[in-house]
């Protein structure tokens, strides 16, 4: 359906903006390494099913792309972040990883290693942007491309919400776990979305309150 395709496309766009920004500027300025490490963890733990289940060629290619691009991003960020003297990327990610793992243990589709990892990845994804937003807030201002990247990334899960509503009516299917974490993820972005609309769409400077 249209919402899901649009969501996946905005996810792809966010990754291309990110990689392109790093490569063009040859700098990791304003980009959180920790957020990108969390996304790599999210993709690897969610897509372990690549090894034992097959949905479609689209699904497989996208999963391989997300895993490989997230690892590539980390390598590039590591390479360029050495030169930055004041690198405000100091969010304690253990405060995100540990609760996500506990929530994965509590809410899952079966007490199996693969199901716990899948649930963990959903919870972790919902809060993975926090180091990046934290960094943006600390630095006070940001490059336009960085904000476009964060916007496209947030838009992806936001578009999954109408996708789930559509699927509920069209196919009679829904998943409480995916929807709950998807809504949390969108809420985490809500302040950013509002500021993005106010400042970027109306073409003024950017800062988070």
């Amino acid at each position: 359906n249209i919402f899901r395709i649009a969501g996946d496309l905005s996810h792809l766009v966010s990754i291309f903006i990110l990689i392109n920004t790093i490569n063009v500027k040859k700098s990791a300025q304003g980009i959180s390494l920790k957020t990108n490490i969390l996304y790599a963890v999210v993709f690897v733990t969610r897509y372990v099913d690549l090894l034992y289940s097959y949905t479609s060629l689209y699904n497989t290619l996208m999963k391989i792309f997300f895993i490989s691009s997230s690892i590539y991003t980390i390598v590039m960020l590591k390479k360029y972040s050495k030169n930055i003297q004041q690198y405000n990327d100091d969010f304690k990610i253990e405060y995100l990883i540990a609760p996500s793992f506990v929530l994965g243990l509590i809410f899952n589709h079966g007490f199996k290693f693969s199901e716990i990892l899948w649930s963990f990845s959903l919870w972790l994804e919902s809060v993975s942007i926090l180091p990046q937003l934290f960094m943006l807030q600390k630095s006070g201002e940001s490059q336009l491309l960085t904000t476009h990247y964060i916007f496209a990334l947030g838009l992806y899960r936001a578009l999954y919400i109408p996708n789930w509503i559509y699927r509920y009516f069209a196919e009679g299917r829904f998943d409480k776990l995916a929807i709950t974490t998807g809504i949390i993820q969108t809420l985490v972005y809500s302040d950013f979305f509002y500021v993005y609309y106010q400042k970027v769409i109306k073409n003024i400077g950017f800062s988070l309150p």
Binding site: R4, F66, R173
Partner: peptide
């Protein structure tokens, strides 16, 4: 099933 429906997503 519901599970396979959601896991076809990314």
């Amino acid at each position: 099933s519901i599970l396979s429906a959601i896991k076809d997503e990314l």
